[in-house]
Amino acid sequence: MFARGLLFVWIAAWIVLGFAWAPVVPVLGDTTRVLYFHIPAAWVTVVALAWSMIQSVLYLAKRRIEHDDQAAASAELGMLFCIVATISGSLWAKAMWGSYWNWDPRETSIFFLLLIYAAYLALRGAIEGEERRARLSAIYSAAAFVAVPFLMFIVPRIFDSLHPSPILPSREQGSMDPRITMVFLAMLVGFTALFYWLLSLRARFARVERRLLEAVVHG
């Protein structure tokens, strides 16, 4: 309860600080603030996908349904954050590059992640039976795991990117104001914590749901 309240205050406070306290980067202007939402969301998208795939492989190895709960919950949340990252990035691209979508490598890779999430969740929705759903979607997830590094490797070879190159903005652009970096890092922590909280909530929900179903069936 306390941790949840703290998380809420933390994110809210840093959003306010991002607008009121941190300055804007000259070229980017007001679009600087996209940074505080876009990059943390993209970061959580990648973490959630990796977590979901690791849990899928663990499920195939150990056959404990909790791993499947984690994989499914992580994929659902990852999809949510992926949409946030895609939309915020697309709006920013419109403001800075003049078009919402141009198959920039970063746009391609986030679209690819979106496709994997959508396919994984659509697949889950179409399989009947808990054990079979867990097993088959884990197989799919493990296969997609193979495709991810290939796309990351191939796409930059084919297209030139306009995307700001460093993930962490303070490295190359030494002129970046430390206040911006601070708000950004704080939001990164906040988003990751938010993901962790939602993930545990979702996994707990799945567990309760299963127990309830068992109680109805057996009792």
Binding site: F112, L115, I127, L151
Partner: peptide, 23 residues
């Protein structure tokens, strides 16, 4: 092999294959 065991079978195949085929 996965898709054959789902409801609707063929319907999902293209959508679920494509992410693996983009590279």
């Amino acid at each position: 092999a996965i898709i054959a065991q789902t409801r609707g079978r063929g319907a999902l195949f293209a959508g679920v294959s494509l992410p693996l085929l983009l590279p």
